[in-house]
Design a protein around this nucleic acid. Structure first.
Lengths: 223, 223
DNA sequence: GTTTGTGAAGTATTTCACAGCC
DNA sequence: GGCTGTGAAATACTTCACAAAC
């Protein structure tokens, strides 16, 4: 396949969402591999490093294109670039944050978003005691500015860090202004239309899904 | 089935992990339903509220027992209690935290764990500038105390908030001391033996799995 | 010789549909 | 009449196995 072919969608079937969710993980590992000076890697080696089967890597990648060379493997830099392109990570995304409580402040100060191309351009609250404060270089605004700021700053992603009982309302506000991607930190899962993507960050739920196994007799410990 | 029967394992086949991961979500919604004064709920109503199919709820619950009444539905309080029991959430769990950087501090101050029965009993770091400080009522200890503290405080769960390049080592340390449940905040997935459970909290990965859809022509937006 | 990309086979998970019970 | 619990059917996902490419 010649490089100038536009092959962003090699077939007309949907890429399974579970595959999409794995691509950023591949990308991240490719970056560390690239940093260590390795130029070419096989699905076998990559799979060993990630503890996934090489077949899964090849099958996943086959959903979005053909990036490898038989007998060789994948060019690390090229594959990373292609994954970034497919995932839309070759540009910056503008994000807004709703809810400047304890958690919201931590998010504003979290240094992990910007280097990955996610820039928090505006932050909102309803509490007049918070509005006007400057945190992490951003001045907190009243929620009424949300609509205008979304278009002004070309914001495509919303982060919600408001109390559970307000989250559904805030999510509906965001989607009514055209936001289709939401990262939700509240411990409840807002209901949205199918074309809206929500990812929930929920450490308590993660803990609660492990205690089940702490209760069992230690199966597999004989390994 | 009489209540005094021990039916914690209605059959000898494994409960799928994907089912276990959904049970805490059911539990959470049941609590809010209970708070609103409703005593009995059908899988249809519950499914509407959670936007999942009633069949899935019934099938999931059937893996761990029979909790409903035909023609009626589920007693909210009873089902919640049973889910708590099966998940091991009817007791407190002792947790330790490794890594007291910016993120670790936020975790120590996060008020969401304790009400759900997860108590951070000890916190560790290797930085002598941090060791000895008191944060959120806990005195930060050197990592060398980890082994003793795990047995002293009956700690069963570890939270890692150390840099990516140290996470694998810290996870191996924890598992070598008998920890089998780990909540990992580092943006890398540590490799562990099959009987060790790891849950990763990774907001950047969550964002990166949404940008794919932001790039597409808005499919489904015609709804 | 090595490794990809992929149909086919095999598993896992979800949904259907209905007997049995309230 | 309404709803659960569950085999059977359908769908989704993973793994196998191998032809084609290097």
């Amino acid at each position: 396949m010649s490089p100038q072919e536009t092959n962003q969608f090699p077939n007309n079937t949907e890429v399974p969402e579970i595959v999409i969710a794995r691509l950023p993980q591949y990308l991240r590992v490719l970056h560390t591999i690239s940093d260590s000076g390795i130029d070419v890697i096989s699905s076998l080696q990559l799979g060993k490093q990630m503890q996934v089967t090489p077949t899964q890597i090849r099958k996943d990648l086959s959903h979005i294109g053909r990036f490898g060379k038989q007998g060789k493997g994948y060019n690390v830099g090229y594959l990373a670039t292609e994954l970034q392109r497919v995932l839309g990570l070759n540009k910056n995304w503008h994000v807004c944050l709703i809810g400047i409580g304890r958690l919201g402040r931590a998010i504003l100060n979290y240094p992990g978003f910007a280097p990955e191309g996610f820039q928090i351009k505006a932050a909102f609250d309803i509490d007049t005691a918070v509005i006007g404060q400057t945190i992490g270089g951003l001045t907190i605004q009243p929620i009424d500015d949300l609509k205008d700021d979304i278009s002004k700053h070309n914001i495509k992603i919303g982060i919600t860090a408001v109390p559970s009982n307000m989250t559904q309302k805030v999510v509906e506000l965001l989607t009514s202004y055209g936001i289709t991607s939401i990262l939700n930190y509240a411990p409840m899962y807002p209901q949205v239309q199918p074309h809206i993507k929500v990812r929930n960050v929920d450490p308590v739920l993660a803990l609660q899904s492990m205690t089940y196994y702490l209760n069992r007799p230690t199966n597999g410990a004989e390994v």
